[in-house]
């Protein structure tokens, strides 16, 4: 049931995704602030399918040259492509941050035992500015293979970016900056180079008192 209703291709399903800040309170406790978060969900056949977005509407927001989104989509499989619109929660107090930990955690599952590679490209005006590549091995749990990228440290570029964004006095200014800030995550089977998931992330600042929010779309080409 999750195919078409969550971030899942026929080979890999994203279970959870979060980018967070941990702030120590005292030696034994810390506060965890979620900038963005996709919580675990268990869609059923009665849930609606994700809305679709024509991938051509966002091509220019991501790398367009060799190995870019267009080429990736042409290679397929088409059911592996998603767009996530995040409303990021920037309400955290970022002062005195020498002991703060900025991290990203994500989890995936598959019916296949494989080694996955996750490439995360931060883009400004559609051009890659920094890339992180991570390799994860499967763990067999409860009848399926689980992949965990646990507490991966946020890069210096992203930490600086969040700080600069926070210093802008108005939300519309932050959203104006975020209009040209995107992230492209491509998860591949390390050995076959098959695309397992391709997720395009775009952002606004949350105005909600309930923290980070998101919408997920299927990327299609009609």
């Amino acid at each position: 049931p999750w195919q078409g209703r969550s971030i899942a291709s026929s080979k890999l399903r994203m279970l959870e995704f979060s980018a967070f800040l941990e702030q120590p309170q005292d030696p034994e406790t810390f506060n965890k602030h979620l900038f963005v978060h996709i919580a675990q969900s268990n869609p059923t056949f009665s849930d609606p399918y994700l809305e679709a977005v024509d991938i051509r509407q966002i091509y220019d927001k991501f790398p367009e040259k060799k190995g870019g989104m267009k080429e990736l989509f042409e290679k397929g499989p088409p059911n592996a492509f998603f767009l996530v619109k995040f409303w990021a929660d920037l309400s955290a107090n970022l002062q005195d941050d020498s002991s703060f930990f900025y991290g990203v955690s994500s989890q995936y599952e598959s019916s296949e035992n494989m080694i996955i590679t996750s490439s995360t490209k931060v883009c400004s005006f559609g051009k890659q500015v920094v890339e992180k590549v991570e390799t994860e091995y499967a763990r067999f749990e409860n009848g399926r293979y689980v992949f965990r990228i646990h507490r991966s440290p946020l890069c210096e570029y992203m930490i600086n970016f969040i700080h600069k964004l926070k210093h802008l006095p108005e939300k519309y200014m932050m959203n104006s900056v975020l209009e040209n800030f995107t992230i492209l995550q491509v998860v591949t089977n390390r050995d076959t180079l098959e695309t397992l998931l391709c997720i395009a992330y775009v952002f606004e600042v949350s105005t909600s008192e309930h923290g980070a929010q998101h919408h997920i779309y299927r990327l299609v080409k009609d």
Binding site: E51, V53, D54, Q57, I58, D60, K85, W87, S124, F125, G126, E179, N180, V202, E204, S206, T207, S208, H210, Q213, H214, H215, Y217
Partner: peptide
């Protein structure tokens, strides 16, 4: 930077793209 990018607001995107969910 690109000079002639079409603003996101002018692109063909679902209405929900501009509606922040209000979930607790």
């Amino acid at each position: 930077s690109k000079q002639e990018q079409v603003p996101m607001r002018k692109r063909q995107l679902p209405a929900s793209f501009w509606e922040e969910p209000r979930l607790a």
